[in-house]
């Protein structure tokens, strides 16, 4: 039975076992663009975690009252509701950040991860555990993006969160401008995916070997 998973398993699966970014490279569209600066990525990560957690919770809460035929439509509306909340709050309290994120906060609506969690988990599980699943799926995604943004900002600007780093911000380090431009995002993510997948493949091979 799918609904009987333990909380710990749910958390581990969301962060590592089924991490949407490096398992399937899903949902990077709306967020890769903001990884040029760590601070942008942090705000974007908060937005994604906020939306996945609360929309999974709401979808699960309404799962018994939602007619199956209009399920997708309702899920989209729930997700859009939370995204609008975040977008409006950001616009009101941090207009500069809202401007520099541009349309990408709104594009969280079309992020496949959120819809994916609603479909694959929240539809068949109680609200509390769905919230946990949504929260950590968002967190798993955020960790990868933060890693990308730290590498990009450090190598490209010599700083992290705008704070100059020793060595990288001095004349000894020739700043890799390419890292803050679009190709840098592709290369960094590719290398992170490569490392994580290799670790995972080696781990699986070890388990296989132990079984034999």
């Amino acid at each position: 039975m799918l609904g009987k998973k333990k909380t710990k398993d749910v958390v581990l699966d969301a962060l590592w076992g089924d991490n949407p970014v490096f398992r399937q490279v899903l949902g990077i569209c709306s967020a890769l663009a903001v990884t040029n600066l760590v601070i942008n990525t942090v705000v974007m990560s908060v937005a994604v975690i906020f939306t996945t957690a609360l929309s999974s919770f709401t979808v699960s809460l309404l799962r018994k009252y939602t007619p199956r035929v209009v399920r997708m439509m309702i899920e989209t509306l729930i997700i859009a509701f939370y995204v609008i909340l975040f977008d409006q709050a950001l616009k009101a309290y941090w207009p500069d950040m809202s401007r520099s994120l541009g349309p990408y906060v709104g594009l969280i609506i079309t992020n496949c991860i959120i819809m994916g969690r609603a479909e694959a988990f929240a539809n068949a599980n109680p609200p509390a555990i769905s919230f946990v699943d949504g929260f950590f799926s968002g967190a798993g995604y955020a960790i990868v993006l933060l890693a990308v943004s730290v590498v990009r900002e450090l190598l490209g600007m010599g700083s992290i969160l705008g704070i100059p780093m020793p060595y990288f911000s001095t004349g000894l380090w020739d700043r890799w401008i390419i890292m803050v431009m679009p190709p840098g995002a592709f290369f960094t993510l590719a290398i992170i995916v490569w490392i994580l997948r290799s670790v995972k493949l080696a781990h699986e091979a070890k388990i296989q070997g132990a079984k034999k």
Partner: peptide, 23 residues
């Protein structure tokens, strides 16, 4: 292609090279 790079990994690297060309 190295096992860990197959699929999305190599596609991202090619996309990066294409983005570089478009710059």
């Amino acid at each position: 292609i190295p096992a860990g790079l197959q699929g999305p990994g190599i596609t991202l690297i090619i996309a990066g090279l294409m983005a570089l060309a478009f710059i």
